[in-house]
Every structure is written in C-alpha cells, then in structure tokens.
C-alpha cells in the first residue's frame, strides 16, 4: 500500500473530505487555503482562495457542484467546485468551526465559536440551488445557542430536521433544527472533547473520536453507544470504511509533548480497528506529527489522512486488503 504524498499545504491540515464519487479529495488547512486533488494520482486540480484565516472545516454536496467552508476569519463560504469561485459569503461575530450539508443538499449547518461575549451558535441555512448559486438567503432559517457545553462538531441526522452535535464536554446530542430544542442527549458519550463525527452511508449510525482516547459508534436515533474503540492516545479523527468491517482512527500526542525522534521518523499512525470486535487489526505509519483528519473514499478503495505536519497522504488499498478476512467468513452487514 504505497502512499501518495500530497504536498501543497504550508501548515497543519484541519479536515479532508472525498466527494461522493470518490474521485476528488478536498483538504483545508491552517494556511487559509482549500485544495482539491485527484484521488487516483494525487495531482492538484485546483485551489479555493479567499479565506483570511484557518479553514477549520469543509463539506461537499452529493452532486460535486457546491462546496462549503468555515473559517477562523468568521466567514462561511459557498464555492463552485468546478471553477473555484466563491459564490456566497456569510459573516458572523466568531469563527466557524464546523460545516455540513444535509443529505438532500438543500440545507447547510454550521457551528460558530463561543468567544468575546458571544455564545456558541448553530445556524441552518437553506441553499438555493437554482441559477449560478450566487443568490443565497442572507439570514439563517434557524439559529440557536445550545446551552451547557459548547458544540464543536455537527451533522444532519438521518431524519430530516434533526442535527447531531458533539460537544466540548464529551456530550453527544440531537437538536431539532427548526426549534433549537435539544431532543435527546448522551452526556457521557465521551469523557473529553469530541474531535470528529462521521456518519455511515445511510446515516443510521455514526462514529465519533475524542481526546479521551476512545472512538465510539452510536445509533443515530437513540444515541446509544454501540461500539467503543479504546486506544492509548488522544484521537483527532475517526472514519468508517465502507464495505469492510473496519474503522480508521488517527491522533497522537501534541507535537510539544512528543520526543523529536518520533517526530523526525514519521511514526504517527493511522490505526485500523475491527468495527465489530473492537480489536486493532493494523497500523499505517507515515506522518511526522499527529494525524488530524482521516477520510475514507465512499467507494472504499482508498483512504487519506491529513497531519499536523502539513501533508496529506493517500493510500490506495491493495488487493490483499479486499481479500483479507482476518476473522473468518462471517458475513457482516455494512
């Protein structure tokens, strides 16, 4: 499994995302830039310029037409994927920490930072898909401030008008997108800040990672914890591998607390765990600092990791990965 190294960012990666077809990989970084790459050869297709601060989060719609991004420059932006143009810009009083499209591409949700007398907020915007995409509603269709621990990650749940949030305290919650009411929560889903949240293809379950060194699979409807993966390092990202019973976990001690030797040797690993048996099945080394973000292609044929070291590494699975049945012939539902 020879990796392709994507060099183009000058600072740490914050999030990476494949489009639904799996041919394009989007990456955003503390260097203010969003890049798009061909997944198969790592060639850079283009750059989305405009943000004046760390780009914390990106998402791509199901048609690979629009991309959204949230940044420390206090803006949420809508981009045309094809020509790299910024189509619309929303401005807020604080940084945008997380963005996500709804399943039908009609709405977006974003989390803004709690700071300078402003509460953390969740906003939902309707996206006008008619015309060239530049005519967007300025005001959100809903806006609310979750009480208690601030939200750090968010996504649309399986059911329309429900938003899943992950919080600084380790809480996971479901909010009604229209009223802003907290419909359900699991206060003790994690013991420390939730760092990532990624949904299964049908959105009926999702995986979260946390600084508490665990990743967990939750039932989207009940928020019950289905599986727990306990590692020995704070986790920054967790991803589900389609078609195979694996989850991919990444993290690592902060660069400050790590010996310079391991920094130099590229020893930061992406860990593969068995989704059902909660056992580690393998590791892939490579990054020169903590792994900040992991994404698996929706096709299940490759995955990518983005590091604190500023590199994106794309790994195409070789044939042995697809043949391997490390725990026998049991048929596992995706």
């Amino acid at each position: 499994m020879r990796p392709i190294l994507l060099q183009g960012h000058e600072r740490s990666l914050t999030q990476i995302k494949f489009n639904p077809e799996g041919d394009l990989l989007f990456s955003c970084s503390k260097d203010h830039v969003i890049n798009v790459w061909f997944a198969h050869n790592g060639e850079r297709l283009g750059t989305y310029d405009g943000h004046n601060g760390t780009v914390w989060s990106i998402d791509v719609d199901s048609q690979s037409r629009f991309m959204i991004s949230g940044s420390a420059d206090n803006t949420l932006r809508l981009w045309s994927i094809q020509d790299g143009k910024c189509l619309y810009k929303w401005e807020f009083p604080t940084a945008v920490k997380r963005v996500a499209f709804s399943e039908d591409d009609e709405q977006i949700v974003c989390v803004t930072e709690q700071r300078m007398g402003y509460q953390g907020a969740i906003r939902v915007f309707n996206i006008n898909r008619d015309g060239d995409g530049t005519d967007q509603p300025k005001e959100p269709t809903s806006f609310f401030n979750p009480i208690g621990s601030k939200a750090v990650v968010c996504a649309f749940a399986q059911t329309p008008n429900l938003i899943i949030t992950g919080h600084e305290s380790g809480k996971i919650a479901l909010f009604d997108a229209k009223t802003g009411d907290e419909v359900l929560n699991n206060e003790r889903a994690h013991m420390d800040v939730v760092t990532d949240l990624q949904l299964s293809t049908d959105r009926s379950y999702f995986i979260t990672s946390s600084k508490d060194k665990t990743a967990r699979i939750h039932d989207t409807r009940t928020l019950m914890v289905i599986k727990t993966f306990t590692t020995e390092t704070p986790l920054n990202s967790a991803a589900l591998a389609p078609l195979k019973p694996y989850v991919l976990l990444g993290g690592g001690q902060d660069a400050m607390s790590v010996t310079t030797t391991s920094l130099r040797q590229g020893k930061f690993e992406t860990r593969f765990w068995h989704k059902i048996f909660e056992e580690e099945v393998g590791r892939v080394k490579g990054h020169f600092g903590p792994v900040n973000t992991i994404a698996v292609s929706p096709r299940g044929d490759c995955y990518a990791s983005g590091g604190e070291d500023g590199f994106v590494r794309v790994h195409h699975f070789d044939e042995s990965y697809f043949r391997a049945k490390p725990y026998g012939d049991l048929e596992i539902e995706d």
């Binding site: 049908d202 009926s204 039932d219 409807r221 059902i276 049991l330 596992i332 539902e333 995706d334």
Partner: peptide, 13 residues
C-alpha cells in the same frame, strides 16, 4: 458479536 451487529443493522433498516 456479528449476529448481534447484523440484527441491529437489519432492525435499523
């Protein structure tokens, strides 16, 4: 474990 998981997945669907 696999049976439990599969039963849950089918129930979800």
């Amino acid at each position: 474990l696999v049976d439990e998981w599969n039963a849950w997945r089918i129930r979800c669907r």
